[in-house]
């Protein structure tokens, strides 16, 4: 049975791209356009992995990630953080470090935009097989 991946991104183009990519590689996909929708999809669809955009309207990726980790039913779902902010661009905002400081389990992987297809697929393979 194919593994189910929830793609959360406010950009429809990004959603199209990621779902196409994942489906081409044998994964089943569900999508959400913002954080609130993402959380409800998580609860209803029980995906094996979440690809989460960091900057989104309504509920940012970080807020949603925090809620996800705090929810006992959801906290074990692996998360790949997809972000436009690289450490090279924003030396003053090291997101990885910032998230770590919140004493919650770090995302299982970080992928930066523009998304490196092979790196994303490798990360997914490593986490859910």
């Amino acid at each position: 049975m194919a593994k189910k991946i929830l793609v959360i991104d406010d950009e429809p183009d990004m959603v199209t791209f990621l779902t196409t990519l994942l489906e081409d590689h044998g994964y089943e996909t569900v999508t959400a356009m913002d954080g609130d929708e993402g959380l409800s999809q998580l609860r209803s669809q029980k995906p094996d992995l979440v690809s989460l955009d960091l900057l989104m309207p309504n509920k940012t990726g970080i807020k949603m990630f925090r809620e996800l980790r705090k929810d006992p039913d959801l906290c074990d779902t692996p998360v790949i953080m997809v972000t436009g902010f690289g450490t090279d661009d924003t030396p003053n905002m090291d997101f990885k470090k910032w998230i770590h400081e919140r004493s919650i389990k770090a995302p299982e992987a970080y992928i930066e935009k523009p998304v490196d297809k092979d790196a994303l697929l490798a990360a997914i393979k490593k986490i859910i097989g």
């Binding site: 950009e11 183009d13 990004m14 199209t16 791209f17 990621l18 196409t20 990519l21 081409d24 436009g84 661009d89 924003t90 935009k113 523009p114 998304v115 297809k117």
Partner: peptide, 28 residues
């Protein structure tokens, strides 16, 4: 420059996605 590269990155990201989706559509 940082801001510009961010903008360009976004555009590139979109282009890359578009190209992939187009390519995938043609293949399938």
């Amino acid at each position: 420059i940082a801001g510009m590269s961010h903008t360009i990155k976004n555009i590139l990201s979109g282009l890359q996605g578009g190209v992939y989706v187009l390519d995938s559509g043609l293949k399938t």
